[in-house]
């Protein structure tokens, strides 16, 4: 079975290390904050100017001046700090954020990512995504492996305008966890109950299937 949104978030959270400063993109990446493993302390960076993001507020705590990058009302965790957008992106571009998790429309075998527009159809804007992928060493892309019509989103070469070039090394889809190395996807883990044949069929870019592909432990 393909992973649910919560399971994707849970698998992402397994990558968190104690003491990590982490930026989570809108959507599934943000959900990962609900699955932080016990004993792991992380500090969430919100690029609009908050380090140490807490959970959503109670009705009484709602503050219009305190939102996350998805414009949702949030709270601050103990040890939080506030700063301007220029300082926020100095942190990001300067490589001070340990892990970035974000969504995408497409990734390819060269580590390219496309996530901000579909010409003629949809223009979201890149927001902070271009800075995040340019600044972080450690990036995980979360996405569905294929479109609803069964078209692969893991391509030999991206077809949409790029958000970043040669910056993605790890992709988590609803079917598999893959690394990108030497211009190829390498299958590392498969979702429980998903066959290697299905992953091969839905991966358009060159894919290496090592002998030791494991089933995800969720």
């Amino acid at each position: 079975m393909a992973l649910t949104r919560d399971q994707l978030a849970q698998r992402v959270a397994q990558e968190f290390r104690d003491g990590d400063y982490i930026n989570l993109g809108i959507g599934i990446p943000t959900l990962a904050a609900n699955f932080i493993p016990p004993g792991v302390n992380v500090m969430l960076q919100s690029e609009n100017g908050l380090l140490g993001m807490g959970p959503f507020p109670t009705e009484d705590e709602i503050d219009a001046d305190l939102i996350n990058a998805g414009k949702q009302t949030v709270t601050m965790a103990p040890g939080a700090s506030l700063f301007s957008s220029a300082d926020s992106f100095a942190m990001i571009r300067g490589g001070h954020v340990d892990l970035t998790v974000l969504g995408a429309f497409e990734v390819d075998t060269q580590g390219n990512i496309a996530s901000y527009m579909i010409p003629g159809k949809l223009i979201k804007g890149m927001g902070g995504a271009m800075d995040l992928v340019a600044g972080a060493d450690n990036i995980i892309v979360t996405m569905t492996h294929a479109s609803k019509h069964g078209e692969s989103k893991l391509l030999q070469e991206c077809t949409l305008p790029l958000t970043g070039k040669g910056c993605i090394k790890r992709v988590l889809t609803d079917l598999a966890l893959l690394d990108i190395e030497d211009g190829r996807f390498i299958l590392r883990e498969r979702a429980p109950g998903v066959s290697i044949e299905e992953i091969v069929r839905l991966t358009a870019g060159e894919l290496v299937v090592p002998d030791d592909v494991i089933e995800m432990d969720l």
């Binding site: 957008s85 926020s88 571009r93 890149m126 927001g127 800075d131």
Partner: peptide, 9 residues
């Protein structure tokens, strides 16, 4: 369209 960090800078 300008990346957010580039816009701030």
């Amino acid at each position: 369209l300008t990346p957010q960090g580039t816009l701030a800078e």
